[in-house]
Amino acid sequence: MSQHDPLAKLSELGLTLPDDPGASANYIPFKAIGETLYLSGQGPRASDGTWILGTIGGDVTVAEAYGHARTVGLQLLAVASKAAGGLHLLEVVKVFGMVNAVAGFADHPKVINGCSDLFVDVLGERGRHARSAVGMGSLPNRMTVEIEAIMRILPEEEC
């Protein structure tokens, strides 16, 4: 077993994995092919399940959007944990973050750091990943961010 315990780290951070909201259209939340886990894009949801909406650089600050990206990171970890059989079996490979921003906004990486920082906080070195952070003129439901990820499901002997 790894010296880094993701569940203990979540607890230490005062966080819990949310319930899987499921798909909101004609897609599945994840697809596993061999040891590779492809996670569908997720947007931030409030505790009541409603979308968190807005435009970064307009009615939403970078700090608020960082928190939204962190929320999405938790949602992605919840789906991935369910798919893999536990957080201890996950390694993040790639993150693609989309930011609903006003024209001319330039701090997309600062927003998506909310998700990236969470992955490293919870998974340690296995949370480090390649990443893209890009701006969009709009996102579905007017949500502030949408993030998708590719993860590796580790064999038990590597954990």
Rank of each mutant, 00 (worst) to 15 (best):
G54C: 10
G54D: 10
T55E: 15
I56R: 03
G58H: 14
G58N: 12
T61Y: 10
T61D: 12
T61F: 11
T61I: 03
T61V: 06
T61C: 09
V62L: 15
A63N: 13
Y66M: 01
G67A: 09
R70N: 02
T71D: 04
V72Y: 00
V72N: 00
V72H: 00
G73M: 00
L74V: 01
L76R: 06
L76C: 05
L76W: 08
L77P: 02
L77K: 00
A78I: 02
A80E: 04
S81V: 01
K82W: 08
K82C: 00
A83K: 03
A84C: 08
A84M: 12
G85L: 09
G85R: 07
G86Q: 04
L87S: 07
L87E: 01
H88N: 13
H88T: 00
L89R: 15
L90Q: 04
E91S: 15
E91F: 01
V92G: 05
V92F: 04
V92Y: 06
K94R: 14
F96S: 13
F96K: 08
F96Y: 12
G97W: 09
G97Y: 07
M98I: 04
M98V: 06
N100G: 12
V102E: 12
V102M: 03
F105Y: 15
A106R: 15
D107I: 05
H108D: 05
H108R: 07
H108G: 00
K110G: 10
K110N: 14
K110A: 13
K110P: 07
K110L: 14
V111Y: 06
I112Y: 11
N113F: 15
N113K: 14
N113I: 01
S116C: 11
F119N: 03
F119M: 15
V120D: 10
V120T: 14
G124E: 07
R126A: 00
R126H: 10
G127Q: 08
G127P: 02
R128T: 09
H129V: 04
H129T: 04
A130I: 10
R131H: 11
S132K: 14
V134W: 11
V134S: 15
G135S: 12
G135A: 07
M136W: 10
G137L: 10
G137P: 12
G137T: 03
S138Q: 14
L139H: 11
L139Y: 11
L139G: 07
P140D: 10
P140W: 13
N141A: 15
R142L: 12
R142C: 14
T144I: 13
T144W: 10
E146A: 09
E146Y: 02
I147C: 07
E148T: 11
A149Q: 08
M151V: 01
M151Y: 04
R152E: 08
R152N: 10
I153G: 02
L154M: 12
P155W: 03
P155M: 03
E156Q: 07
E157A: 13
